[in-house]
Write a protein that binds this DNA or RNA. Structure first.
Length: 290
DNA sequence: AGCAGCGTCCGGCCGC
DNA sequence: TGCGGCCGGACGCTG
């Protein structure tokens, strides 16, 4: 499941491969065509597959950047600029390849849903096993307002102040801390894995209410989250389940995780416990985390 | 108006 | 080996 560090890894590999290339033709899988024909918003969001295919033709990719867990592909055609806002969901993956057969892992190859054929013959393939991903073609970010509500990038200065301000709002102060740090409007890019790790490092119980944590501890928690995210970026992200970096390689942050997916606490050996918070499985040490 | 709770996109995988 | 149920980023809808 790609969180900020995994998405960052994808962008760093993808950007130099596709920036400057122009789309000649787009092909959408029959499965997505069928889902869309049945009225579902499968992968291609906010427009028909026909409109998407037509609009993408002739687009030049000018810049690829990460914004929270989104990948923003900036485009240009006939003097107009566009934004393809994309999200990997649980199992999305991009493959810049010469031929389809170059997508080596079968489980990705058999779930290819969108193929961008470039004018130089190269292919950019989007594969998504569970189809939770998103390709949303816009002119500007504001055309899809939820994007504007994302918290600032965690590595910029204003992110801490934004977080502290959120912890004081009525809508957040009575919620479990884990639900709040995983909320993309509070902190950008922190999902289940890194929330679990940061709370364990801070000895904070994931179900502790936001208002029962001091401002100093909130500040330390935020800095811990940023540190864990940066550490993961430095180690190529976590390779868990279906996430892969685009070249088929893999990160090794999963070997450095101290709590996520653990049966026993690495500090005190107490069996870990698990509970549902904001609909997600949350693992913690009942002795170390209070 | 804003929010909680649930539905929606799904196939892999687990446990029986 | 077959099969039902669980899992989950993030938004949209409902009450």
């Amino acid at each position: 499941m790609p969180e900020l560090p995994e998405v960052e890894g994808v962008v760093r590999e993808l950007a130099p491969e596709i920036e400057g290339r122009t789309v000649r033709h787009v092909t959408v899988s029959p499965i997505i065509e069928q889902s869309k024909a049945n009225g579902r918003e499968a992968i291609i969001k906010g427009m028909s597959t026909t409109a998407f295919v037509e609009a993408m033709q002739g687009m030049t990719i000018t810049k690829v950047i990460r914004r929270s867990k989104y990948i923003y592909i900036h485009l240009e055609k006939e003097g107009n600029v566009y934004l393809l806002a994309t999200h990997l969901g649980m199992t999305g993956a991009w493959f810049p390849v010469k031929r389809i057969e170059d997508v080596e892992e079968e489980k990705f190859r058999k779930h290819i849903h969108v193929i961008f054929e470039m004018t130089d013959g190269e292919l950019l393939v989007y594969s998504d096993i569970r189809r939770f991903g998103e390709l949303r073609l816009l002119q500007v970010e504001a055309d899809y307002p939820p994007l504007l509500k994302m918290a600032p990038e965690p590595f910029i200065e204003e992110a801490l102040n934004h977080y502290i301000a959120c912890t004081k709002l009525p809508k957040y102060e009575n919620k479990p801390i884990k639900a709040v740090i995983m909320d993309g409007q509070v902190i950008s890019g922190c999902g289940n894995i890194y929330a679990t790790e940061a709370l364990f490092k801070m000895n904070i119980h994931p179900n502790r209410t936001v208002k029962r944590i001091s401002e100093t501890r909130h500040q330390q928690l935020f800095e811990t989250i940023v540190h864990v995210l940066q550490e993961s970026i430095n180690h190529g992200g976590s390779t868990i389940s279906d996430y892969r970096t685009i070249n088929g390689g893999a990160g090794n942050m999963q070997n450095r995780l101290k709590m996520y997916g653990k049966k026993h606490c690495v500090v005190c050996e107490t069996p870990t416990k698990s509970m549902q918070i904001a609909g997600r499985t949350s693992v913690y040490c009942p002795k170390c985390q209070r």
